[in-house]
Design a binder for these strands. Structure first.
Length: 516
DNA sequence: GGACGGTGAAACTTCAGGTTGCCTC
DNA sequence: GAAGTTTCACCGTCC
């Protein structure tokens, strides 16, 4: 296709392309490499647009109201949406993401500036895919993204039902850059696909479930099974592969998740036929789909918990220091001292030993402390805006962490049950409830009611309505003042009081109460 | 003469995302 | 590596 000239209104390639797309009545996705950049780009585009669409106003309002109190991020998003532009990344809550995706599909929103979130999960085709950043910061500095990822993003261009073709455009900064991008991405071959089985956490997880499910119960069966996987196909060297499996089996045995039966001194030719079974603990760990290393860590922590002072933080830190919780919130340079200070407050409640400051794993430990602290603030009723300001954790990321923590706490509940540490479970169950609702312990009785979340529960509590009994005894008028009429009625009904609406004509808001 | 405020250059920071896992208060 | 943020030196103004 012949080259097309796009008018340069702003001198910024991605911006010009986006504006041109809107002008021609089409839609585009703009891919960038950071959340901040997604927000900034969306903002820049929206600043160039005049719009006063009623539908957009409503959408914008909905995006703003996704949380009980809007964060700065919500406000920023709402402002962009008013102009038909949105940003999209893991920091948004799912409600906002769905809203954006839906209104892009129906054409209300014209441009989405996104991190790679949109390239993978969601099926959102657009006329244009504008790829602004082809480099991304990783563990070893700024690097070109894989060709596979470029293909994912450019694959979003062109909507089969609406367009005859689509345009995927890489934005180059210079002529030199242009040449490099052309060679690397347009002419380049996608990378080989590598099996993920080789990653230790994955291997040990599958190995254990294979045994726990009685799918393979001897070394021979196990090796046969893995021999048929894509991993083995790529690995080729079966002897080395067997070594890795051996090492893992030993580890699982040492952790008491599996048992090798038969005598220890078996004839050499029979050693691969020894029966391997999962222990009770091993079976449960496999069912929970937990990384055995995490399970092993939990067991050690719970044992420690049985003879030392514990509180909510103990468990929050325990679940935060697992592979499953990654990526953790990062302790920035400036925060270092503050986190240390906080750690001191909770030091006695830790279930694991603090690594030495000079060990490489200290950073990860510090991050687990920060992540745990963030959740701790949440269960002490700090809202998302506070967490965004103080922990640099965006609402979507907070929700994600809370959900993971809930699952991991459930898993630790199960493990502690098997270890007969029932009394610990009471604490964990309570913590999970608090985590789910973001409330202090004193609000737990109220939170059981439908339509009562952290905000309303707190409002009730500060009006001295502290439990179900108080709700029952409370005057409906007062309850309505606190909660609004509809919610008050629903709550009264839930505690077993049927309320009859007084017929129209009587004083507004007047209702009569009737016990069951 | 000193406190204060504004300015710009230099130094320093930070930087994507994620599947299924379980049970149901 | 690039964009955003903080720090700091420098200068002018005002009291």
């Amino acid at each position: 296709m012949p080259a097309k000239k796009i008018s340069s209104e702003t001198g910024n390639g991605a911006l010009d392309l986006a504006l041109d797309t809107i002008k021609s009545g089409k839609q585009a996705l703009v891919f960038v490499n950071t959340k901040r950049s997604a927000e900034k780009t969306a903002e820049d585009i929206s600043n160039k647009i005049k719009s006063n669409d009623e539908k957009l106003r409503e959408l914008s309002e909905n995006a703003l109201k996704a949380l009980s109190r809007p964060t700065k991020q919500c406000e920023r998003l709402a402002k962009c949406i008013k102009k038909g532009i949105a940003f999209h990344h893991a920091g948004l809550v799912s409600k906002q993401r769905e809203l954006i995706e839906g209104s892009f599909r129906n054409g209300t929103i014209k441009i989405i500036c996104a991190t790679p979130t949109l390239a993978y999960g969601v099926d959102l085709p657009a006329f244009r895919a504008i790829i602004k950043d082809l480099k991304r910061y990783g563990s070893n500095g700024l690097n070109y993204i894989p060709v596979l990822e470029y293909l994912q993003m450019s694959g979003r261009a062109g909507r089969p039902k609406f367009d005859k073709f689509g345009e995927a455009i890489c934005v180059a900064i210079s002529d030199n850059d242009k040449k490099k991008l052309y060679e690397r991405y347009i002419l380049g071959e996608p990378e080989e696909i590598y099996s993920k089985l080789a990653v230790e956490p994955v291997l040990r997880t599958y190995l254990l479930s294979l045994i726990a499910a009685n799918f393979a119960n001897t070394k021979k069966e196990i090796v046969d099974f893995f021999g048929k996987t894509f991993w083995a196909y790529q690995f080729v060297d079966m002897a080395r592969l067997e070594q890795i499996i051996d090492k893992m089996l030993d580890l699982l045995e040492e952790w008491e998740f599996i048992q090798k039966h038969g005598q220890d001194f078996v004839e050499a030719n029979k050693i691969n036929d020894r029966r391997i079974n999962a222990t009770n603990m091993g079976k449960r760990v496999a069912e929970l789909y937990l990384d055995p290393l995490t399970a092993y860590f939990f067991i050690a922590c719970l044992r420690n918990a049985s003879d030392r002072r514990i509180n909510e933080f103990s468990f929050l830190q325990m679940v935060s220091h697992t592979l499953e919780m990654r990526p953790l919130l990062r302790v920035s340079i400036k925060e270092g001292d503050k986190i240390q200070e906080e750690l001191l407050k909770f030091y006695d409640f830790l279930l694991e030993k603090e690594p030495s400051l000079y060990e490489p794993e200290y950073e990860d430990f510090a991050n687990s402390i920060k992540t745990a602290l963030m959740m701790h603030e949440w269960i002490n009723e700090k809202d998302e805006e506070y967490l965004l300001e103080n922990y640099n954790a965006r609402p979507g990321e907070i929700r994600g962490k809370l959900e993971l923590a809930d699952w991991l706490l459930y898993a630790s509940e199960e493990i502690s049950r098997i270890l007969h540490y029932q009394y610990l479970n009471k604490e964990i169950v309570k913590l999970r409830l608090r985590l789910r609702h973001g409330v202090k312990e004193e609000l737990l009785p109220l939170i059981r009611l439908q339509d009562i979340g952290r905000v309303r529960a707190r409002r009730l509590f500060s009006n001295r309505i502290k439990d179900i009994k108080d709700v029952k005894n409370a005057d409906l008028m007062k309850l309505s003042q606190i909660l609004g009429k509809q919610v008050a009625l629903s709550v009264k009904k839930q505690v077993g009081e049927e309320i009859k609406e007084v017929p129209a004509g009587k004083r507004k808001g007047q209702v009569s109460l009737e016990k069951y």
